[in-house]
């Protein structure tokens, strides 16, 4: 690990002033659950680490006129035990529980989850997000069992965020601050698929800070997530499906179905959403939606199994959402 300065600002303005134009100038430290590993492995090597946990304005969960505001430094544990979140967002509670290490839940933050670097082992070994060596992707002919079945260009890694699929389904936004102002971005637009080396996986710059997450109220709708894991212990899902259903009586008025951990961005399965409109969720309908959601999948040499997992995840998430009423 390269030596760095440690900055401990107490205001957002101060923190923004401590960041630089490049990630090699400064990195943000929140929960640190992944950042410290990236530093130890020399994947990140900033000259300065800016701790944002002392900034009070970045914490707390509050009700707004249109829904909920979750501060970026709220820990996964605090989110999971928050009465407002529990009342309306079972998908977020379930995704939080899926992070099955209490230690990680106590340390890790919601903002950190959204900005988590991909788990792709080529990326983690210094080959970059596009995993290129001598002009060729290492993924295509390599060990790609955990990679994308919805790749975009040369981006074969999968988005690591646990909350992103549910937040995209719910239509949430993130607020991002820089020295020049604040902007809001739909979580659905926040993730990017890099086209060339040097481009990042999300719409945030080295001198910006993700400050809060704005989640529209889920009253009158149902939401759920189903994550498929290889083991019960701490691990990332192999595939996940998050659903948000606006209901009219017993039938679906409109639906958003989002696949997670199958592409560099959460995948909004529009065909599945359209198929569900006007129908009540039965086992058969849920299965059809699953099939529609994975119809465009392009699996690699070793990850065809993920197509089936994603398909079943959609079915189970839908059945979970309408369970018990």
């Amino acid at each position: 690990m390269q030596a760095f300065e440690f900055a401990n600002p107490s205001t957002l303005q101060e923190a923004l002033g401590l960041l630089g134009a490049n990630y090699s100038d400064a990195n943000i430290l929140a929960g640190g659950t992944d950042e410290l590993s990236l530093l130890k492995d020399n994947i990140h090597h900033p000259k300065r680490l800016v701790n944002i946990k002392s900034i009070k304005a970045l914490g707390g969960i509050t009700k707004t006129a249109t829904g909920l505001r979750v501060g970026a430094t709220v820990t996964v544990d605090d989110l999971m035990n928050n009465a407002l979140v529990r009342a309306e967002f079972p998908s977020l509670i379930s995704a939080a529980r899926g992070i099955s290490s209490p230690q990680i839940r106590n340390m890790g933050t919601v903002g950190g989850d959204l900005t988590l670097r991909p788990r792709c082992w080529y990326f983690r070994n210094g080959f970059g997000l596009l995993a290129m060596k001598e002009g060729k992707s290492l993924v295509v002919d390599g060990q790609n069992e955990y990679h994308a079945i919805f790749p975009e260009g040369l981006a074969y890694y999968v988005s690591a965020s646990s909350f992103a699929p549910a937040l995209v389904a719910l239509g949430a936004k993130v607020k991002i601050a820089s020295a020049t102002g604040v902007r809001e971005v739909e979580v659905a637009q926040f993730f990017l698929a890099p086209k060339e080396r040097g481009q990042g996986e999300s719409d945030i710059k080295p001198n910006e800070i993700l400050t809060e997450i704005l989640i529209p109220s889920a009253k009158g709708s149902k939401n759920a997530i189903y994550e498929v894991r290889q083991k019960e212990a701490l691990d990332w899902p192999l595939a996940a499906a998050a659903v948000s259903l606006r209901m009219k009586g017993n039938s679906v008025e409109s639906a958003r179905v989002v696949l997670g951990h199958v592409g560099p961005r959460p995948v909004l399965a529009e065909a599945a959403g359209k198929l569900l409109a006007g129908k009540s969720i039965t086992e058969g309908v849920a299965e059809e939606a699953g099939k529609a959601a994975v119809a465009g999948a392009k699996p690699l040499s070793n990850n065809g199994y993920k197509v089936q997992l994603a398909q079943v995840a959609v079915k189970r998430a839908l059945l979970e959402a309408v369970k018990k009423a």
Binding site: F6, N8, Q13, E14, L16, L19, A21, T180
Partner: peptide, 27 residues
């Protein structure tokens, strides 16, 4: 930093930086 943000017509950052006392930085 100012060189890049200046290109976007910012400059608030530079002004604040010149006025602000050194903050809580270790190392």
């Amino acid at each position: 930093v100012g060189i890049t943000s200046g290109a976007l017509g910012a400059g608030i950052l530079e002004q604040e930086a010149a006025a602000a006392p050194p903050v809580n930085v270790t190392g």
